[in-house]
Simulated scan of single mutants.
Amino acid sequence: MPLSLTAVRRYPVKSCRGHDVDSAVVEPWGLAGDRRWALVDDDGVAVTARRHPRMVLITPEPADDGLLLRAPGAEPLAVPVPGPGPLTDVRVFSDTVGAVAAAPAAHAWFGEVLGAPVRLMYLDDPRRRPVDPAHGRDTDVVSFADGYPLLLTTQESLADLDARTGGAAPLSMTRFRPNLVIAGAPAWAEDGWRRVRVGDATFRVVKACDRCVLTAVDPETAETGPEPLRTLARHRRWDGKVWFGTNLVPDTPGAVLRVGDAVEVLETGPVAQPTGTPR
């Protein structure tokens, strides 16, 4: 079965709800419109659904001049892209990058929805934030994503994981927040990919993605549970972490991805043998 791109997904505000698109432009720091906004606390630390699970219920809808924010029990709010202004440091894990604050109404809206003081920040120039040099080149940059421009997952790996959980309800791919979903490969084949072509775009596969408690937050209800981390810990654990999906860095910015694009694995490499690797 040939490999194909079955879904393209963007997340306008880091850790809030994403949306599927039929096509998207690849930029050096990720898909156009992906994770250019983030919430921060009073210390300037990026806030995610790890800390506030209700963030997965907030829907940011892209507009020509900003975002339209929606959340259960809240009035919608239009937020324009902020104009040039002073930069405020935003800390994403070990990185610090300057960003511009949105209008005060946006801070108040998010604070009311989450029940905590937060501010909405816009990354006007993602070229300020390099990727981890251990897994990228000096010129590689990233938006407000955790560490790398894009995340790829495969339908077959999710199906294998789902079968191993033994749950009555299948796991949703949205728990893993990928940008690109691929079909047609054997389960976990992506562990060995090093370069891929998707349509006209080529990517380096720089690092497998270690997963955190955010995957245990149900994207439809914001409730937390033991899966998929419990099953990943039994079958996909090595280096003290659990793994699902893989991180990409684009080598052809400006290319357009379209659902249905053919996918070709250009280069493979050795596969780690974690405890409980599916065979």
Rank of each mutant, 00 (worst) to 15 (best):
F203H: 06
F244K: 08
P274A: 08
S4G: 12
A106E: 01
V26H: 09
N179G: 02
H107K: 02
V40M: 07
V92H: 03
P126T: 05
A49T: 04
R197E: 13
P178W: 05
V217W: 02
V263R: 05
L161T: 12
T174M: 13
L3W: 06
F176C: 07
G33D: 04
V265Y: 11
T215Q: 03
R128N: 09
R129F: 10
Y11Q: 08
A7S: 14
L152Y: 05
T88L: 08
A222G: 10
D65Y: 06
D34T: 04
V242D: 02
F110M: 04
R197G: 11
D34Y: 09
A272G: 07
N247K: 01
T246M: 01
A32Q: 12
P12L: 03
E227A: 09
Y148F: 15
A38I: 00
E227W: 04
E264D: 13
L151Q: 01
L68K: 07
G111W: 02
W37N: 11
R128A: 15
D251S: 12
G167H: 09
H52S: 14
P72A: 05
E75H: 08
T275I: 07
C16M: 13
A183I: 00
T88S: 15
D218R: 03
L161K: 11
S157I: 00
D218N: 14
R17M: 09
V56Q: 07
K207R: 15
R177H: 07
P2H: 08
